[in-house]
Design a protein around this nucleic acid. Structure first.
Lengths: 391, 391
DNA sequence: GCAGGATTGTCGGGCTGGACACCGAACACC
DNA sequence: GGTGTTCGGTGTCCAGCCCGACAATCCTGC
C-alpha cells in the first residue's frame, strides 16, 4: 500500500502545524512568533496559538527580549527549545563498546554512558544486555520524560518493523531482539535504523543538513554507506534496504568484492584499498594508514595517492550527483581526517566527473558533527518519528 | 528554502482530502463511497461529503449499481472519473513531428494532433509555432475546460521555472520560449518537464506505477534516462536536474562519452553500443539493429549479444537498486521491442548484480504504455500539478 | 410472499482549529 | 511627551471532519 490514503482531519492539522513550527525552529534557530509568521506567511495570531500550546507542553521557552540597535518597535522574544525538551536516548556501536547518550531537541548531548562490549563478537544476548544497561544509565539521569530510544545499527535494517536483517560489524544485532529487549525493559518506543541513514537525520536536525531540502550524507572509511534526504524527507526505500552506494558498479568487469559482486565502488574507495595501494607504493606504516596520516605524510608520493583516493571517492559521489542532484554532500568517517585539503580535492575531482549543468549545483562539506554523528543520528530517529511533519 | 514552512489550514484540508480521494481512485480503479471509507479508515459520511463536492464539480460520476452474486445489502454505486474530467493537453516530440493529444483523468487519449516538424533542426520560433498549432488543434476539439498543457521535453529542464536548459534531440526547445508561447496563446498553465520524468508520472497515473510507492521508469535506446517516483512523489532534485543515470560511471577509466565524461553507462548500454558490437560481430544489418531485430534474428551469435546487452543494461539498473531499492523498474524504449525474452534476461542479470537482500525485492516490467508513454506523462504533469496531494 | 439481516448512502449536531480584526504593550525617533 | 512601528494576545467567525441516527435497497430463509 503506497498511498496510505489517510485523510486529514482538524485533529491532525494541529499536530502537523506544531511539527512544522518545530522544524522551522530547527532549520533557522531561535525565532520569534513574528518571524515564524512571516516565514509561514500567516497572521501572527495563528502562530501565537500554536506556540502557546508548545510552550504549555514544556517544549519551547521564551528567551529574553532581543535589543538590537536600530530595530524599532517592540522587541521580539525568540522561542527556542527548552533544554529538557525532546529528550531522546540515543545508541550507537563502537568497536569495543556500546555508546548511549541523552540528547535534547537542540542537539546537546546531556549525558553519556559507555558500556564495554566486544561488539564484533558479542552474542545477541550479550549485546542486548549491554544496550539495555547503557540505555538504563542514560534514562536514570534524565531530567524529564524521554520520548523514545533511537538505535543506529551498522547494517541492513527495516525501521518499519525494527528487524535488523544483518550486520557485518555487529552480527549480534541481527533479528528483532534488540528493539524488543529495550522496549520491554523501559516501555519506550524504540526506533532502529541503519547508521548511515541515521547520520543523515543527524545532519538534518542538528548539522549542515538543516534547511537543506536535498542532500546526501556519505560514510567513508572501512565501508561506504549513504543516507539520503530527498525533498526534506529521509529516504528509506522499500523495506528500508537503501543506501548501498558502496556496492554500485564502477567497473563492469572489476575486482571481486567481499559482498560477492564485482567491481563495486567499495573495491576502490575504502581504507582497505587505500592501504593496499600504500603498501604497493611502499609508503610507511601502510597497514594503519588513513586519510589523516596520508595528509600528514605530505610527500609527493603520498600526495599522488591522496589525489587518486579523492578521485575514486568522487566516482561514487558523481553517481549520486548525476542521479539525484543533491544540493550538498556531507562526508563522514575517514575523509574528515583528511581535512580541507582532501575535501577540496574531492570536490574538484567530483566537478570533473559531473555533467556541466550539475557541476556547480553541489557543494562538498565535511561533517561538523564529528564523533557524535551516530548518536545524534539516533536521536534524530526519535525526533523525526515524534515530530513527523508528514501529512 | 527547503521546507516551505507552509502551515495547513482547514481550507486546505478539503483540497488535500479531495486529492487523496482522486489518487485512491486512480490507484485502485472505480470505488464506491463505502470502499473509499474502508480504505481510508474513516466513516462513510466523511467520504460522502467529499465525494459530493467532486461529483458536483463534474469530476466524478456514479456508475450503475453493481449486482454481484452473493453480495447482500444495498448494492454499491462505484465512483469514477467522467470522461471529460481532468482534461489535459499533452505534448511530446517525435523525430519529425510535434505530437499533441487531449487526455482525460482516466488516461484515455481523446484527440490526437500531429504537426510535421523537423524537431532536431527546427529553430526555436519554428518549434514554438508547431507546438502552439498542435495544442490549438487539441484545444479546439475539447468537450470541456482543459486544466493545462503538459510538455515532455527530451532534455534538461527545470519545471519550477519552465526553462529548458538544453536538449540534444530538440535544440530549439531550449530557453523559456516554449512554455511562454503556449501560455500566452491560450492562457492556460503550462508544465514543462524532462521526458523521462514525465514518463514516470505517466506510469504513476495510468500505468504499472499505480499504487506503487517507489519505482523507477527507465528510458532505453538512443539515450538512457530515468524518472524516479520515491515514496509516492516524483523526485526532481535541486533545479530539476536529476535523471542522468546514463552518465553514471561504470568504468573508472572507460571509453569517452559524447557528454565529455568517461566510462558512462551510456557508452555500453545504448543502441550506439549495440550496433557497434553487432558490426564487430558481423551481424546482418548492424547499422539499423535494435532489440526487436536482435531477438528476431535468433542466431546463437545474436543471442550471445542479447545476453551481453541485457547484462550491460543490468549494470545501470543495479545502481538504481542498490542505491534506492525501488519496488519496480519499468522499462521504456528499445528494450520493449525485445519482449519477454529480453525482459527476463535483464531481470536475471540484474539479480546477479544485486546484493542478496535486495535481489528479490524488485521486479522488472516492460512499460505497458507503449507509444503513448510520453503523451500520458505530459498529461500526468498537469494532473499532478492540479491534483497535488502534497501537504 | 414476507420478515429479518446486511450493506449503502444521507442528514444534523458537536468539536477542533485556523483566519480575521482589533487591542494593549514596548521601544525608537523627533 | 507625542507619534509611528512592531510585537504578542483576545474574541468571533467559519470551514471541515467526527459521530450518531435513519431511510433505501437487496439477499436469505421460511
Amino acid at each position: 500500500m503506497s498511498s496510505p490514503t489517510i485523510l486529514l482531519s482538524n485533529r491532525q492539522i494541529g499536530d502537523v502545524n506544531r511539527s512544522r513550527v518545530l522544524r522551522a525552529l530547527c532549520d533557522h534557530g531561535p525565532l520569534s512568533r513574528a518571524d515564524l509568521a512571516r516565514l509561514a506567511g500567516v497572521p501572527r495570531a495563528t502562530i501565537g496559538t500554536i506556540a502557546q500550546g508548545l510552550v504549555e507542553d514544556g517544549l519551547l521557552e521564551e528567551h529574553a527580549p532581543t535589543r538590537e540597535a536600530g530595530r524599532v518597535g517592540k522587541p521580539s522574544r525568540p522561542l527556542w527549545f527548552r533544554d529538557d525538551a525532546g529528550l531522546c536516548a540515543a545508541v550507537d556501536f563502537g568497536a569495543d563498546a556500546v555508546r548511549a547518550a541523552l540528547v535534547n531537541a537542540r542537539g546537546d548531548v546531556l549525558t553519556r554512558v559507555t558500556v564495554p562490549c566486544p561488539t564484533s563478537t558479542a552474542s545477541a544476548a550479550q549485546l542486548e544486555a549491554a544496550v539495555v544497561e547503557a540505555v538504563g544509565g542514560v534514562l536514570r539521569g534524565s531530567p524529564a520524560e524521554v520520548l523514545g530510544v533511537g538505535i543506529a545499527v551498522p547494517g541492513v535494517c527495516d525501521p518499519a518493523t525494527g528487524i535488523v536483517r544483518g550486520s557485518g560489524p555487529v552480527p549480534g544485532a541481527a533479528g528483532s531482539g534488540l528493539s524488543e529487549a529495550v522496549a520491554v525493559a523501559y516501555g519506550l518506543p524504540v526506533l532502529v535504523d541503519n547508521d548511515a541513514r541515521a547520520q543523515a537525520l543527524g545532519e538534518k536536525w542538528f548539522g549542515d543538513g538543516r534547511g537543506i531540502a536535498t542532500f546526501a550524507s556519505v560514510q567513508t572509511g572501512v565501508g561506504l554507506g549513504v543516507g539520503l534526504v530527498l525533498d526534506g524527507e529521509l529516504y528509506r526505500g522499500a523495506g528500508g534496504a537503501t543506501g548501498e552506494l558502496g556496492h554500485t558498479v564502477v567497473a563492469v568487469d572489476g575486482a571481486d568484492c567481499h559482498c560477492g559482486l564485482t567491481g563495486c565502488w567499495e573495491t576502490i574507495a575504502t581504507l582497505r584499498w587505500l592501504r593496499a595501494e600504500a603498501k604497493r607504493l611502499r609508503l610507511p606504516d601502510a597497514e594503519r594508514l588513513d586519510a589523516a596520516a596520508l595528509v600528514a605524510l605530505g610527500t609527493p608520493r603520498a600526495n599522488d595517492l591522496l589525489v587518486v583516493y579523492a578521485d575514486h571517492l568522487a566516482v561514487g559521489l558523481a553517481t549520486l550527483v548525476q542521479l539525484l542532484a543533491p544540493e550538498r554532500l556531507l562526508l563522514h568517517g575517514d575523509v574528515v581526517g583528511g581535512g580541507e585539503l582532501l575535501r577540496a580535492l574531492v570536490e574538484e575531482r567530483l566537478r570533473e566527473r559531473s555533467l556541466p549543468h550539475l557541476r556547480d549545483g553541489v557543494e562538498v562539506l565535511l561533517s561538523s558533527l564529528d564523533q557524535d554523528a551516530g548518536l545524534l543520528g539516533a536521536a534524530g530517529l526519535v525526533l523525526s518519528e515524534r515530530f513527523a511533519l508528514a501529512a
